[in-house]
Amino acid sequence: MNVLLDAVGITKSFSGIRALDDVTLRVVEGERVGLIGPNGAGKTTLFNCILGTLRPDSGSVILNGVDLGSLPVHRRARMGMGRTFQRIELFSDTSVAEHLLIAERVRQGNGALWKDLLGRGRPTSDEIRRCAEVLDLLGLTDLAEEPIETLSLGQGRLVEVGRALVTGPRLLLLDEPSSGLDRAETDALAATLAEIQREKGFAVLLVEHDVELVAAFTDRTYVLDFGRLIANGPTKEMMADADVRRAYLGDLEVGR
């Protein structure tokens, strides 16, 4: 098995407070990994260190054998890291299809200025076809021409997933995809995600507060508390782990 993402010994402090303390996280190709922990445990900080929006004080992030060092976010994205956002981030004033088309164009890296000026910057039929495939996969075909402002939050999340998928990620980082969704919407999203993952075979790192979703979706889970990794292992074991329960429930005597 080929290790895809290797974040080793990540440490990060904010004004003296240690948000992450020597955290190591590994994702194998095609694997579905969860990252959970109570509020303020450092999940988001770790996520941002992996994605390059934050630079860790020490430790390194290695993607497919390449140390990412201080590469900016967009370079990491081109190396195969896709992501979604907790607070949905879509391009305002565009249609669903346009989201995917620009992602496809960036993936091809085919955007010289002179081509634009000669009128060769518009979407090609090839690109349109590829994006239509992804839309079909997500069940968004009917919404392709809709302005994103008219979508529901759940549909918006799917567009984010689609936009990331078009870039052909080997690792998809999902940042709290259930937030803002009700139970039924969360379940529907989880089902769609699972299906696509099975088909495309990329690896997933899921940061989530909804333990139920993590339990249903992931094979393996890391648990953070106070910036430290307190446990990691198969998701089912984690859910039964006493330390994990204590982190979530505090001093509540479990099974009283």
Binding site: D182, R183, V211, E212, A215, A216, L249, L252, G255
Partner: peptide, 27 residues
């Protein structure tokens, strides 16, 4: 509270089991 709605309400001493159930029901 769960997903923006009240899922259970009652006296505090009955809450423990509900909480464990809510947070750690596996799929």
């Amino acid at each position: 509270l769960g997903h923006g709605a009240v899922e259970w309400e009652g006296p505090a001493d009955e809450a423990t089991d509900v909480m464990v159930g809510q947070m750690f029901t596996t799929g």
